[in-house]
Amino acid sequence: MTDIFSSDQSISSSLPDSKEVDAELQQFLLIERERAKIQAQIHEFSDICWDKCMDKPGNKLDSRTETCLANCVDRFIDVSLLIANRFSQMVQKNSGNF
């Protein structure tokens, strides 16, 4: 979850050398890979927030549920950022030992 927002470094390093691959294709794959990551993240959020926010499915999403879903996404991201930050502080304090 450390790469909720972006991870350009890991993407470019995991693709083959640019000399081997057509630049246009490489660009296309970079974009699609990033898009797929975001989409996977959306699936995960939907899963988690559906369980948190959805009661009995009705004729439409009521505004309370809509607010809950939007908050759920934002708070989940807050939590994962908080945990990532705190974890890295813990690691630094213990100089690499948990």
């Binding site: 975001i38 959306i42 939907s46 927030c49 959805m54 999403l61 934002d74």
Partner: peptide
Amino acid sequence: DRYLETWNLVSKSYQIRI
């Protein structure tokens, strides 16, 4: 229907956050 709506709403919220 609600799940698809949820997916779209979550998608929107996430893009805004990004």
